[in-house]
Write a protein that binds this DNA or RNA. Structure first.
Lengths: 110, 110
DNA sequence: TTGTTACATTGCAATATTACGATAAAACAA
DNA sequence: TTGTTTTATCGTAATATTGCAATGTAACAA
């Protein structure tokens, strides 16, 4: 069917998966890293930097905006993008919480 | 085209994206959480727990095995799955490294 | 106004993912 | 051996993702 059965899982599980999905493409990782390095930039900079078509970059930016990890502010004809500090902290917390230390038994399997 | 242009990105960016992709489905999050809670379990347990078809669970297990986050050992007719401690630590390090603290300028955007 | 620049959106093609029934394979019991 | 249990794999359908050319839209300049 190709449709994830969201209802079978907890809210938390769906949230972690959705957050991971936003990071599940190298172009989006590259965008985030570039935004951190430059503090902020416009869409055109990313098109040059990454070597993907403008429409493609715009689509990736849309996805990152949808999960709230970046925000864009209109700056004349261009749009200035940057990391949203609040969502960034949430990402840190959620992933640190999920990837917590586990007390693995000796050679854990059976 | 539907084909990610892997060559445009660094090895590190591709790795982070691949690791995130493995976590980008709630069923796989649920499987990992259950494995941590129970220390280990067999495929049949997960089929009961999650309410997905056996073929579907088996497929998710295959993906998790492919990135090395879980390992399976044959135990008679069944297969015992558990978290791979080494890969788990790598996940912790990689995500902690990527989601590091950022010194956000005042209201960071432009 | 006309033209230009910067992005977003639309429409499409190629590929990937999700899900499951059916079937295969391997271990074991009777 | 035959049957049962457990998991993997195959085949298929439905849906999602990736990528880009073309087009739309908004801001600005001349």
């Amino acid at each position: 069917m190709g449709l994830t059965k969201t209802a079978l899982f907890t809210k938390q599980q769906n949230e972690i998966a959705a957050m991971a999905k936003a990071l599940a493409h190298p172009a989006r990782i590259a965008i985030i890293q570039y935004l951190i390095k430059q503090n902020a930039c416009i869409c055109g900079d990313l098109v040059e930097q990454l070597g993907l078509a403008q429409a493609t970059i715009s689509q990736h930016l849309k996805e990152l905006k949808a999960v709230g990890i970046i925000q864009g502010t209109i700056e004349g004809a261009s749009v200035c993008y940057c990391i949203d500090p609040k969502t960034w902290k949430r990402y840190q917390q959620v992933f640190a919480g999920f990837l917590k230390d586990v007390d693995f038994k000796d050679s854990s399997c059976c």
